[in-house]
């Protein structure tokens, strides 16, 4: 076979359609480890039925109100049992601890890291992904332009660990190539679009089922549509 072609096939990040999950050199693309997402419709579309651990996951979304964190809440709850760090790097706001606690997540495991510049952001993300002390790493890379080599470094760091590694980026990044094993985009509230999935189906839309989030609570998308009350009217009662 052509030597140049063989070299490309030997690269770990080359996916061959005929061998799902296996690279040409016989190594697994990612760990067998997967973590159920907690959403049956999403699990059904993901290779191995859940979030790949030990690989970076890119989530592209503009703004942070489209339920992208809700996507990972069931996973965070499961990972909480491991007792390792769940690291938030450059989060846009502060995660509301009472909510995490109500969802069964040990807030003592959550670390907020605020790097001052882009270099520190990439460094901290790599450190956290590489470390064996993290069960989950969420990093808000933001709208910045990242070189393929930088993202590949993060992917390699993720591959050397076994954590759930999620990189949040802006929607513009969808046009560029990225080394992440799984790339998702959120375009509407709780509507996930699978942009890229190594060894699995791509270009699919998945909506998260309402009844699987927290069964005993009214869900945001079940709330009565339209204004509950006119802002000018004083509420007659409250349930404080």
């Amino acid at each position: 076979m052509n030597e140049a072609l063989q070299q490309i096939i030997n690269r770990r990040d080359t996916w061959r359609g005929d061998l799902p999950g296996l690279a040409a050199n016989g190594e697994r693309h990612w760990h067998e480890d997967t973590l159920p997402t907690g959403y049956s419709t999403l699990d059904a579309q993901l290779q191995h039925g859940g979030w790949p651990l030990g690989s970076s996951i890119e989530l592209l979304s503009d703004g942070c109100g489209l339920g992208s964190m809700g996507l990972f809440l069931p996973a965070m709850e499961k990972l909480s049992a491991e007792g390792r760090w769940q690291v938030f790097i450059a989060p846009p706001f502060t995660p509301y601890a009472p909510l995490l606690r109500a969802r069964g997540i040990d807030t003592g495991q959550v670390l907020l890291v605020h790097p001052k510049n882009r270099e520190d952001l990439l460094w901290a993300t790599e450190q956290a992904l590489r470390s064996s002390t993290c069960s989950a790493v969420f990093s808000w890379l933001g709208a910045g332009d990242y070189r393929y080599a930088e993202l590949r470094k993060l992917q390699l760091a993720a591959a050397s660990g076994d954590s759930l590694g999620v990189l949040f980026r802006a929607s513009d990044a969808a046009a560029n190539h990225a080394p992440a094993g799984l790339r998702l985009q959120m375009r509407a509230y709780r509507q996930v679009h699978i942009l890229k999935q190594r060894g699995g189906n791509q270009h699919l839309d998945v909506s998260l089922p309402a009844d699987e989030d927290i069964p005993d609570q009214p869900q945001l998308w079940e709330l009565p549509a339209g204004p509950a009350r006119s802002p000018q009217v004083q509420p007659a009662f409250s349930f404080a």
């Binding site: 491991e82 390792r84 760090w85 690291v87 502060t94 995660p95 601890a97 009472p98 995490l100 606690r101 807030t107 003592g108 959550v110 670390l111 907020l112 890291v113 605020h114 790097p115 001052k116 520190d120 460094w123 901290a124 450190q127 956290a128 470390s131 064996s132 002390t133 993290c134 069960s135 076994d162």
Partner: peptide
């Protein structure tokens, strides 16, 4: 799983480079 170092290891590395203020814990 395969935790290979105490939890404080990562915390120390982050704080030594980014500063004490840059790494925070949360609680209720």
């Amino acid at each position: 799983r395969k935790q290979r170092e105490p939890l404080a290891g990562l915390l120390d590395r982050l704080r030594n480079r980014l500063g004490l203020q840059a790494v925070l814990a949360i609680g209720c």
